[in-house]
Design a binder for these strands. Structure first.
Lengths: 166, 166
DNA sequence: TTCCATGCAAACCCTTTGCAAAGCG
DNA sequence: CGCTTTGCAAAGGGTTTGCATGGAA
C-alpha cells in the first residue's frame, strides 16, 4: 500500500508490455496516489498544471488508461458527466451512493454483493471481472429539514466521501 | 403493461404537469414501446427517420426526458459512450451484465440486492430511490474456445439481451 | 538509432441550447 | 391568442486522435 510498491507494480506492468518508463508516467502515478477520494481527469490535469511539471491532456488520459489496465486506478462513471478516477491499489472494491439533492458521493462496501455477482455470472455464463453499484438517494436531513450541509459544497468535491463503509 | 395503459400514464403525467399532448410525444412513446431491449437515442432517431414521421433530435431528447420523469423509460449509462434507454413500465428493475469481449448486454435481477440497498441507505443516512448495478465479465465460451457467438453481431445490438433473469 | 511517448490542436461523440416558426389548449 | 413545442443548427463538455517532435532503450 505504500507508494514504492505501487510504483513497482506499475513498472513491472510497463516492462511486461514492452512499454517505456517515462518521467511523465511516474509523475502522474504519484499525483494520482497523492489524491484522496475520486477525482476527474481535469482535476488531475489542473493539479499537474499548477505543479513544476505540467503535462498535456493526451498524456494524462493515456497514462490513466495504463493505470486502469494494471488496476492501480479505478474508473467510475456517474451519469453522462460524472467521470471519476481513483487510486485503487490495496483498496477493496467500493460501491457508491450518490445524493440526488446535493451531489455528494459516499462510499460503502457490502460483502453480500459477492454472492450476487457469483450467481449472476454462473446463471448467464460469464466469468465476472468487476462490478459497479450506484445507489441514488436523498439525505434524510434534507428530507426532514429541507437543508443539507453538503449542498453545493460537495457537488464538485466528491473527495468528501471519507468512506463510512459498513 | 399494454400500450393503452402506458399512453394513459403518459397523458396523465403531462396533464398533471400542465404539459401539452403533442403527436410527436405520442409517436415517440409508441416507438419506444415497440423497441425490445435497450436502445440508444440515435437508434430511436434513426428509427423515426425511417418512418413516415421523422422527428428532430431535440424532440427525441426532450421527450425521453419526460418519459424518464414519469418512469415509463429507464436510462442506463454504460461507461462513457454507452447511453441506453429502455421501456420500463411494469418491468421490475433489472441489472446488467456486460461482456468485456463481445459487448453483449444481458439482464438479470437478484432480490438480495434489496437488502444491500436498504442497509447502505440506513448506514449512510439516505433514502434510496433507485440503483444501478453493472457487472463486467467474459463469456465462458470465449474463455474456452476463443470464439464468441455474440461477437460483433451484438456489439451494436444490446437488444439481444432477452432477459434470462434468475 | 529506433520506435514509442509526448504535446498540441483539431476532431469526435453524444447531448443540450438558442431562436424562429408551428400548433396545442 | 398565448405560450409551449418543435426543428434546425450550432455550441458544449469530456475524451480521443493525427501528426510532428522529443526521448527511453
Amino acid at each position: 500500500m505504500n507508494l514504492g510498491s505501487v510504483e513497482a507494480v506499475f513498472f513491472e506492468y510497463l516492462q511486461e508490455r514492452g512499454l517505456r518508463q517515462t518521467p511523465e508516467r511516474l509523475c502522474i502515478l504519484r499525483r494520482v496516489y497523492a489524491m484522496n477520494g475520486p477525482f476527474t481527469a481535469d482535476t488531475l490535469l489542473d493539479d499537474l498544471r499548477n505543479s513544476q511539471n505540467p503535462l498535456s491532456r493526451a498524456t494524462v488520459y493515456n497514462t490513466l488508461e495504463l493505470l486502469l489496465e494494471c488496476r492501480l486506478v479505478a474508473h467510475h462513471q456517474f451519469g453522462r458527466f460524472g467521470s471519476y478516477y481513483e487510486k485503487s491499489h490495496g483498496r477493496r472494491q467500493a460501491d457508491h451512493l450518490l445524493c440526488t439533492n446535493c451531489g455528494r458521493i459516499q462510499e460503502f462496501c457490502d460483502p453480500r454483493l459477492h454472492a450476487i455477482m457469483q450467481d449472476a455470472g454462473q446463471a448467464l455464463g460469464q466469468r465476472i471481472q468487476h462490478h459497479q453499484l450506484h445507489l441514488h438517494g436523498v439525505c434524510h436531513l434534507f428530507e426532514s429539514t429541507g437543508q443539507c450541509p453538503h449542498f453545493e459544497s460537495s457537488k464538485a468535491d466528491p473527495s468528501s466521501s471519507s468512506q463510512p463503509m459498513h
